[in-house]
Design a protein around this nucleic acid. Structure first.
Lengths: 267, 267
DNA sequence: ACAAAAAGTCCATAATATGGACAATCGATT
DNA sequence: AATCGATTGTCCATATTATGGACTTTTTGT
């Protein structure tokens, strides 16, 4: 089973599968265009020639992955995706096991907490619980955040061996999401080191303005991060300085989840 | 697990896209195999030769649509797919608009209610609210149900013009899920007529034993069904006969949603 | 340690995805 | 209604690429 390609592969596609990569790119384009997207838009977004996009949209629609908004001819993500993925989400071992600990973490910190897993060169939130404060961080399951700007991303990077880390950083130039985002390689490297020695990651408005987060990795038996957890709060509440309490709760949470994971039945 | 392929499913394919159709079939196979699926299993499930499956799994993994369970080499749906699915779910106008009316329907009937949309030759639940009774129908978002056995399916079929209906019924022979399921064409046709004249659909343990449902379509401005809603309850409570109250609430619900949809901003 | 099963690789060949060029529609404007 | 510009849909010769039988390597079970 060595042939499992590394997740960060963007350029050297698996031989003999060009169409599929294109199809996925197109699907992603439909998803990224927040509203309904027309054929022309999608050509622009993907850079593929019109006949190609036309053909791929036709298959995706035939498969129910996307649906054409009647009359306007614009495309949206389809119900087939929901049927494919919700069951998997519901059954995700990591999510199921982490769930009660996430609840406890949210309750003890009273801030919004996230469970994220790596996906390519990004992290994806697969669960979240919101703070009960009136002013709180709102977010959505399924949201993708970058590795260099989010606390979960940094926690994940810091958990990697150097080789894997370097491969991930071959990607495109990191983007700045706020004036606080660090995009230069030395700065990001320093962040990773700091995260490693501290034992937790910080995001100080680097991903979203006025939001600060703590993050930590759930380290599996093999030393690899099974996922990462973050606690996110508005800047002013972060600055009020509950650091210690929150950090203890976070560290406790990831440790307990790691234990519960280790106690799992064989796959 | 519905084993083995139906080899004749190559007709309505968009020309020049055979791989993609295969890829989707494979993805579906990974999803349908409830747990982690190994390469061999997937060969059996799809009927594709081993090298083909191997190659397709490699792309899907490279794209993050599936992930290989480390060490066991078994595949599960990946976070990328989850991210796409939640975007689709979250972005559904129908779901967002229907939500408050669904809540009202659940509250007034105190039974489990579903919102379903057509996807290929099936219906997919895109939202649900559970009854607060101790004995109630449990279900999950993303579940697929067949057109001929479910109340939402029948409601949808009954809303179609004859031409579209016939095209859908070209598919494979309807399956029986319980001893009550009607699988013969004349019976199903009769059900559809009855649904049309009644204005609502019934499922009397045809989809699941001991569960009975009422269903109705949300008819859009163009006369097409944008989706369907069902109220599901245990048989004994159905037989107790709250028919009238529930039916009124259901009809009211779909009418209100149709109105709210019509009042939407342009696509 | 050995055999059987499963995963992974190769490569000549057939199949099919590609995209430039052209045709059909739609929608606004006069 | 007729015209123009923009957008979508179709065709098809060609080169690319997916295919799967046969073979090799790795894993599993005893």
């Amino acid at each position: 089973m060595t042939a499992i390609p590394d997740p960060a592969k963007l350029s050297p596609d698996v031989p003999g599968t060009a169409v599929i990569a294109k199809t996925m790119r197109l699907l992603q384009a439909v998803a990224d265009a927040k509203g309904p997207a027309k054929l022309g838009d999608l050509c622009r977004l993907t850079g593929f020639p019109r006949p190609t996009v036309h053909r791929l949209l036709a298959v995706l629609a035939a498969e129910g992955m996307i649906v054409a908004d009647n009359a306007s001819g614009a495309f949206t993500l389809g119900p087939r995706l929901i049927s494919l993925a919700f069951l998997a989400w519901d059954g995700s071992d990591l999510r199921r096991i982490a769930q009660p600990f996430l609840v406890a973490l949210r309750d003890s910190t009273d801030e919004t907490v996230h469970l994220a897993v790596p996906s390519g060169a990004e992290m994806v939130y697969i669960d979240k619980l919101e703070s009960r404060h009136v002013v709180r961080m709102a977010s959505r399951i399924g949201t993708r955040v970058s590795l260099h700007s989010s606390s979960v991303g940094k926690a994940f990077l810091a958990s990697l061996p150097v080789a894997a880390l370097e491969k991930l950083l071959q990607g495109p130039q990191p983007l700045a999401y706020t004036p606080h985002t660090k995009t230069a390689w030395p700065d990001i490297g320093a962040e990773i080191s700091a995260t490693r020695s501290r034992g937790y990651a910080l995001d100080l408005q680097e991903n979203e303005l006025d939001i600060c987060c703590f993050g930590a990795a759930i380290t599996g038996a093999d030393g690899k991060a099974a996922g990462c957890i973050s606690v996110s709060m508005p800047r002013y509440r972060f600055e009020a300085g509950q650091d210690h309490t929150i950090l203890e709760a976070l560290k406790d949470c990831v440790a307990r989840i790691a234990l519960a994971l280790a106690a799992m039945p064989p796959g």
